[in-house]
Every structure is written in structure tokens, then in C-alpha cells.
Design a protein around this nucleic acid. Structure first.
Length: 407
RNA sequence: GCGCCGGUCGUAUAGCGGCAAUUACUCUAGGCUGUAAACCUAGCGCCCAUUCGGGCUUCGGAGGUUCGAGUCCUCCCCGGCGCA
């Protein structure tokens, strides 16, 4: 048994026996967990540079197989020495398998989607259509079958096909430290039987992804692979999914799919109790500050989420007192920082009025400054959560944060 | 002086007999959770109504034609161009 490229060690556990502080070792260095993994879909964490990310204390980022395959093509990235080298990031990297795009360009195409079950009604048809021409032509861009998925590129309409084997092959070339099995994601309000179907397909694809990965020793020598647990908001499916994947020899686990907002804990706890304790768990696509406390306590180690950068780019900022809109009138003449007492580069250098002005003037620096602030907020939040667990003050820290955040 | 064109919501526009009146920007509010997103949605004359909706006042000014006028006619004011 040769040493695995990705390993995990636990330093301390929360009193509830599930939450933990640990370290993931990767070929490009350690990730101290719990940790935020920035989303760098197209080999860039939008509006920021790797230098800025380093200064923020970001440990790792995750790029996307579907996007890099289409542009610039995995060969280009491979030639550059992998995603990290390609984009000038020397730390650990991950790549998502493209499974999420099967959903967002397929079933979810033209709809407003969320990771969480909508509270009222179901998804409305055609609430958000980003490209009406493409939408009317195709209806959707991806069609799933048991073998894989056929899709048309959202960039030029050309036809492509992904299978688990192909996704892994591309991810080998992209060269991230941690890669993900190809999976299928379903809408949050999907019926039990549909979630079950997607889950079963995900299991079959997980097995094939793992086989494809382990079977290619030359390419994968420096990469670990995570399997992805599915099952939506249904406890029985989550249990089944965690059990099935736990029986496969992955280096870590992703928890994907959708949740019920008020039962995030419940769903995650079921999964945590089943997955092998000694392997890292990555909660895909979550989350908001309050979700992170819940997820860490339920045994999740790493998180990626577009929120800090997307919100930042669109003028919403995290503050200790909750989310705020920088473009709102009240910031127009605010000569204080975006968030009082914040130690990020944006807040120590610029006023809220200035950032607000940049957004109103549609200057792209606004997106950068707000993204830096939001990333700082989330990265340091997880770092503080980590410290609080080590010091045994997690609950107090969580309660105090929530009290102020909701004010 | 004559001729032609034009004066519509902060700005720029659409409208050529049924109109509180198009579109874009600005503005205001809301949204965004493995990025199809430097984006999306909504509102933007005043008043009333929880909803359907109802009332009032608007398209340079004053008259007129018409069941009905931003739209047609007359005169006036203002701007641009052309000819004297």
C-alpha cells in the first residue's frame, strides 16, 4: 500500500463527537480545517488575484472540470502544469467534476435554483433565463442517461459528452490535488423517487469514477479523490448514500445536492455518523455564515461557496450585523469602513462611501474590494471557528456570532 | 420675414385618433449558497384599495374638431436648419 496523496488527521473533536479540527495533507501543502475553499471555477477566483488570496489567508481553492474543459481545454491546463500553476496559485487545489453543471444546464436551465428546498410553491418556470435564444432553442443544454450526460456548450452550442471516466480523465489533466467523482444533482423540490434515481446513478458513477482513478496510476499519482453523497433532503436516501459510498475506498467525501433549510443539521448528522471518521468531508456549495456553524458542528471539514465572491461582485457585503447592500442609499456618504472593526485590506484602506461609489459608477475595482472583504469575512470566520473548537469555546462563539448577526 | 423640422417622466427616446403613455440609462428596493451571473427581479405622475381595481392630473401654451386628442386643425412661445 503506497501512501495516499491526500490524508487527514484530527487534532481535536467537539464535545458532540462530530465536529472536529484537523489537517488535510495534500501534495501542495496542508489545509487546516474547518476551512473555506474559494470557488475558482474558470481558474480564477473572480475579481481577485492569487496574491490577494494569499494575503487573505486562503488555503485552497476549487476549479471546475466542465468550464475548464470547454475553455481553454484540459490540454492547455495540463501543459501549464495543472490548474494551480496555470493560474499562479501555489497552494492546494480541487476540481469539481462537472456534475453540478449537468443540473444547472439541464434540469435547472432557465430556472432560479437554490441549494435549499423553496419554502413556498415549487420552482417557477422561466424565472431567470440568462440567454433567451439558447433557452428557446434547446430548452435545456444537458440530457442525462445512465451512462453519462450529453450537453451542448453554453459558450458556442457545440455538442459534448461526459461520462464518469471522461470527467476523471479531464480532472487528471487539470491536475488538482483533490478531484471529485462525477455525480448527479437534483432540484431541491424533486420528489423522493427522482432523488433516489439521481442518487443511485451517482453511486454507480462513483464506482466508475473510483475505478477510472485508481486504474490510472501514472496520472493520479498526486491526486486524491472524493466520492459524493447525494439524497437531497430525504434522511433514508442520505443514509443509504453515505453507507454505499463509505464502503468505497475514497480519500474523502463530498456532501452534495440539496437540503431542507431547517433540517441541514439533521441531514448532515446522518451522513457524518456513517462516513469514516478519519477521512475529510467537503460540504459542496455551502454556505452562509450561519450554515457554516451548523455544518462544522455536524462534522464537515471544508466548504466551498460562490456567495462571498458573487455577492461581493453584485454589491452585497457580509458584516458582523448581517448582510448589507453597499449600493443602498445609506452607504453613499458613509465615511466609515464597510464593516466596523474589520481588518481586511478593503476596510483598513477604503471607506464604504468609496466602495459604494465604485459600484454606482460600475467600476470593476468595486467588485474586487467587496470580494476581498467578503472572502476575508468567511475565511476568518472559519479560522475563528477552528480556534474556538481548539479552545473549547465553540458554542459561546457561535451563539454570540448569531446574536449580533441577526441584529 | 418666408420655408422646413422639432418641443413627451431626471436624461435620451417611442408613440401618427382609444394612453398614465414605449424603451434605455439614472434612481429606489429586493434577491443571489459545488458560478450559464461585474448578474437577476420589481418599482419609478398623484391619491385611494388587502386583491380585482377606482379616482385625479399629465406629453411647450391657449383655443378648436371629435363620443374620445400626446396624436388632427388654428394661433402663440421656444429651439435647430435653409432661403432672403
Amino acid at each position: 500500500m503506497s501512501k495516499r496523496p491526500v490524508t487527514f488527521s484530527i487534532e481535536k473533536k467537539l464535545a458532540n463527537g462530530m465536529g472536529r479540527v484537523g489537517v488535510i495533507q495534500t501534495p501542495h501543502g496542508p489545509i487546516e480545517t474547518p476551512a473555506f475553499i474559494a470557488v475558482g471555477t474558470k481558474a480564477t477566483v473572480k475579481a481577485t488575484t492569487p496574491e490577494q488570496l494569499n494575503r487573505l489567508g486562503l488555503q485552497s481553492l476549487i476549479a471546475n472540470t466542465y468550464h475548464l474543459y470547454l475553455q481553454p481545454g484540459e490540454e492547455v491546463v495540463e501543459k501549464a502544469g495543472g490548474v494551480g500553476k496555470f493560474m499562479g496559485w501555489s497552494g492546494p487545489t480541487m476540481t469539481d467534476s462537472g456534475g453540478f453543471q449537468v443540473f444547472s444546464l439541464g434540469e435547472g436551465f432557465g430556472k432560479k435554483i437554490s441549494k435549499f428546498t423553496p419554502e413556498e410553491a415549487s420552482l417557477e418556470e422561466g424565472v431567470t433565463v440568462f440567454d433567451e435564444d439558447i433557452a428557446s432553442q434547446h430548452g435545456k443544454l444537458a440530457i442525462v442517461d445512465d451512462e453519462g450526460v450529453s450537453f451542448t456548450s453554453h459558450l458556442d452550442g457545440s455538442l459534448h459528452r461526459f461520462t464518469p471516466e471522461r470527467s476523471i480523465e479531464i480532472q487528471h489533466k487539470l491536475g488538482a490535488d483533490i478531484i471529485f467523482a462525477f455525480d448527479e444533482f437534483r432540484a431541491p423540490d424533486a420528489a423522493h423517487r427522482d432523488q433516489k434515481e439521481a442518487m443511485e446513478r451517482t453511486h454507480s458513477w462513483a464506482k466508475r469514477s473510483l475505478t477510472a482513478h485508481r486504474g490510472n496510476v501514472r496520472k493520479n499519482a498526486a491526486q486524491g479523490i472524493y466520492g459524493i453523497v447525494q439524497g437531497g433532503r430525504h434522511h433514508d436516501l442520505r443514509k443509504m448514500s453515505a453507507e454505499t459510498l463509505a464502503a468505497m475506498d475514497f480519500d474523502g467525501y463530498g456532501i452534495g445536492g440539496t437540503f431542507s433549510k431547517d433540517d441541514l443539521v439533521g441531514t448532515l448528522e446522518i451522513v457524518s455518523k456513517i462516513l469514516p471518521e478519519g477521512k475529510p468531508r467537503h460540504l459542496l456549495g455551502i454556505g452562509e455564515p450561519e450554515d457554516l456553524f451548523i455544518a462544522v458542528a455536524a462534522g464537515m471539514d471544508t466548504f466551498d461557496c460562490v456567495a462571498p465572491t458573487r455577492m461581493g461582485r453584485t454589491g452585497q457585503i457580509y458584516t458582523k450585523g448581517g448582510k448589507r447592500d453597499v449600493t443602498s442609499t445609506i452607504y453613499r456618504t458613509n465615511s466609515g469602513p464597510l464593516d466596523d472593526g474589520c481588518a481586511c485590506e478593503t476596510c483598513i484602506t477604503y471607506t464604504a462611501a468609496y466602495v459604494s461609489h465604485l459600484f454606482r459608477a460600475k467600476e470593476m475595482l468595486g467588485a474586487t474590494l467587496a470580494s476581498i472583504h467578503n472572502l476575508h469575512f468567511i475565511i476568518s470566520l472559519l479560522r475563528n471557528i477552528r480556534h474556538s473548537i481548539l479552545e473549547g469555546t465553540f458554542e459561546q462563539f457561535r451563539d454570540e456570532f448569531a446574536r449580533v448577526y441577526r441584529s
